[in-house]
Design a protein around this nucleic acid. Sequence first.
DNA 1: TTGTATGCGTTATCAA
DNA 2: TTGATAACGCATACAA
Lengths: 343, 343
Amino acid sequence: MAPSRRAPTADGTARRRVTATDVAREAGVSQATVSYVLNNTPGQTIPAHTRERVQDAVARLGYAPHGAARALRLGRSDVVLFLLPDWPIGPAVVTLVEGLTERLQAQGLSLLVRRAAEGVALSGLWRSVSPAAVVSLDALDGAELEAMEGAGIPVVSALVRPRASAPGVLTGSHTLIGATQLQHLAATGHRHIGYGLPDDPRVAVFRDLRLDGVRTAAFELGLAEPSVRVVPMSVGGAADVVAAWRAESPAVTAVCAYNDDMAFALLAGMRTLGLTAPTDLAVIGVDDTPLAPFAHPPLTTVRQDADAIMDFLTAAVLRRLAGGTPPRPPRSEAITLVVRESA
Amino acid sequence: MAPSRRAPTADGTARRRVTATDVAREAGVSQATVSYVLNNTPGQTIPAHTRERVQDAVARLGYAPHGAARALRLGRSDVVLFLLPDWPIGPAVVTLVEGLTERLQAQGLSLLVRRAAEGVALSGLWRSVSPAAVVSLDALDGAELEAMEGAGIPVVSALVRPRASAPGVLTGSHTLIGATQLQHLAATGHRHIGYGLPDDPRVAVFRDLRLDGVRTAAFELGLAEPSVRVVPMSVGGAADVVAAWRAESPAVTAVCAYNDDMAFALLAGMRTLGLTAPTDLAVIGVDDTPLAPFAHPPLTTVRQDADAIMDFLTAAVLRRLAGGTPPRPPRSEAITLVVRESA
DNA sequence: TTGTATGCGTTATCAA
DNA sequence: TTGATAACGCATACAA
């Protein structure tokens, strides 16, 4: 009955943790040797015989290194922290998490995702997790970023804000997204175009960026300034906005929705008005949600190639970890227009 | 030029970490005192004067405790590990993550999410993170679970499999979901009912559980065995299945979709056939996706109350952390029928 | 009331 | 080739 600091479990047992010292004793070697074997320490030649004995003992005892101790000693863990902002999390972000998890896992790194809680900053977290690197979807506070880099933690940002074009920062192509939307509508003959603004203040960055792209493209094509309206995420609310657009003179004949979800709302609102896309009003979304092909009519949308982003992010993390400089972000981040029937 | 182990940052700087000892020196007290102040150590009375000096120094130096060192000393971190299985992650899981993050944050705990990569087990992770607790969406390997509990780490499972009704395990109400779907269809006069099976093998557990609920309910109501078909997630594929259901004799007049996404596919398939719900074929989903109200026609579906689940999970974690036994799971986990127009 | 000293489990330096 | 041993940064039992 070995005494223990740990809280007893439900069934009353309370095992002590298996340490490298236990393994050493079991294998009849010193604890240092265990470490050498387990880490393949360069410059240390271990005879096959010893190596085997150690590995047997490890297996027998079910030993696994203590991450905290390792992190304390090494100054970093094998965790990559993925900081998710306050925003609503859509399928695109989920895909990103899935892809990054797999890619980093292949490199022996564990992606741990932390979502920012409403309003609260994640500032302290990195100090307590000692991650090998941090990937952030949002812009980080300048001082915070400096502190992290100062502590030797590479920060890679998949960012979106136009200003920050620092190395290791993927400046999003949201303006390009907006431009692509508008260009498609213009190419299909529309002259008076609306822009549907989201209600949620948390996505203000994207909203502004995308709208900016739309505006600029409209200007370049010699079109009128787009008619901007906030679109509520309800059938009735969306219908009202649609009606308002159509009542303008000249009437709006096509709208860029902030994203596919909004496009769905718009389409639903139109139906209650007896209207159909694209004849009465063309609608184009952003994201290419899995549900987009099932919209009525099937949704025309703009997609951002997730693979390109994930590859860049992974490469950036790896390069920084190896002490190098981050790769250049992909030029235009593979924005593709997916033409279906709604526009 | 202080030497440092750390990799130099991009700009060549390489600061040493600020430790509690640094704070102590700055404040002119001992490191122990710093610790006392920062942790409000019970049984230690610190005069306001000293306390202030320490806190000033902390602020001035920007000190934050080193998580790894803390975890090593305490045996546990303030991280709660949320293990996400291999399955496709939908809006429901996202909501769960958001809710748990906030609730735990309010208790000073950080929820870190780890998605299982394709096929690879997450077995080792807990050993290296030293979490205060683990929340798992999936069933854990028995040995693994025992090891974690043995190490004093409470494991709370939001489970779904019927067998495991152990304490701290939330046995899902998937059969109830299926039953609710069928009961609604029966109540609206349908006698010959279809069940749409998902293609993805990863969701087999839910699939079987929900189908089981449908079957049982059908039996209890004296209806014929439901006609089960795999529904591909494409307009054409879904259309084929719809046609097949209608070609049966007696024809299927209503279907339970595995989830809302599938319901969208089915609805889209029907449209290509010139069919509309619920007249030609009633369709009911599961999840109440944000997009469900925007379906054509608006989707009737079954919703699982996320709040109840999150509350239970949070309570379970906290109770176990306090050394107590987990609360009893909510009896029926608040399944609600959301009637719109598709069924 | 505060300070000293110890150990948590590792890795890495050095001597054997 | 291997084995003592010293940090890593913190919390706490104990001494002052």
